[in-house]
Design a binder for these strands. Sequence first.
DNA 1: GTATGTGAAGTAATTCACAGCT
DNA 2: AGCTGTGAATTACTTCACATAC
Lengths: 206, 206
Amino acid sequence: MVKKISKKTIERALLYIRTLEGLVKSNRYLVSSGELAKMTGFSDVQIRKDISKFGKVGTPRIGYKTIELRDILEGFVLQQDSVYAALFGVGNLGSAILKYPGFHKGRIKIIAAFDKDLKKIGKKINDVNIYSIDKAPKIIKRTKIEIGIIAVPKEFSQEVADIVVLSGLKGIVNFSPMSIVVPKNIVVRDIDFTIEFLSLFCDIQR
Amino acid sequence: MVKKISKKTIERALLYIRTLEGLVKSNRYLVSSGELAKMTGFSDVQIRKDISKFGKVGTPRIGYKTIELRDILEGFVLQQDSVYAALFGVGNLGSAILKYPGFHKGRIKIIAAFDKDLKKIGKKINDVNIYSIDKAPKIIKRTKIEIGIIAVPKEFSQEVADIVVLSGLKGIVNFSPMSIVVPKNIVVRDIDFTIEFLSLFCDIQR
DNA sequence: GTATGTGAAGTAATTCACAGCT
DNA sequence: AGCTGTGAATTACTTCACATAC
């Protein structure tokens, strides 16, 4: 019943969860794979295949119960209520991340921020303290933080990545437009706006 | 010689270009697929396979000329010098995008911003004018803008998507944590921070 | 000897086609 | 009839193994 679940399926499952949360909020009780397909852009077969990896949960002729499906997907995909993160670099983007409303109300909690600008250190944004970056390993080790967010200029991204590693974190979201080199037991997600835009542009051209 | 180039190859090519630009800047003349592999995290075979889609450009025993390879990849992947975009929603994230240094100096030019907050309309951020959002179709049609960036709260993302479509744009980068429904000739790239974080977290757990 | 380039083999992901349920 | 669930077929992607070039 519980088969090996691929990364792609998990990524789509997170989107199904997001969509189901919207449906639950608007009091929808049932939804079909076809409707989810229209809402998410994936094919209906793909969605059924994905969901079937988590067990038989739908009813033929009827569809899926929104609440039940959401809970099942969440149960498999997210074992914790909250994911704790630390932000490195409180510039324009870093500040926007600290204020990001999706985090504020959701599962992802940023509980410490680091910068090297003395004007910022000691301040707070959205209730998150900003500390000196060289205190990061010490401070982080006292917390449950698991993820580091790198939002510093690209000249500094590697040295900050090294600090993240020293701090014992297991995952990095790297917003800097530069690849970082880390031990391979540490998982990295790169979000490079320029590359996202250019790859979209390539898709448009063809 | 020029074979069908897959989306995945193009996405990696953009990363190779980014890496090569760094090498060129630091005056590196040659680079091997193995070195690129270490720098980007892909395998060396993968990199050679990708590059071979663009022709025979390397020299056995020597490697690739950084400048030449960059130019070849750029030539195939990006036919224009600049990509023009419009931003919708000048909140925390939107402002950070307007100030994003990678855009300022690079190929992506945001040349108009739209918001419905009267306090923002008429102002400028980083030399970009902020207009009333309902003037968007008219203003955009006078420009070469091809891409719309949605950075509004999720309650409004669909109505803004509709305006983007009305404006005749062909691509959307959607930063709002909600799927938008658009005609299928319009290409959408979703960047949902929450989903990126959660999917990283799933990877860490396994 | 060392690095590129590539056909062939092997994996993974998607779509098809249809059985089964209510 | 209408929707889920899934083996089978297809397609796409990656890795292997080695020929080729200097």
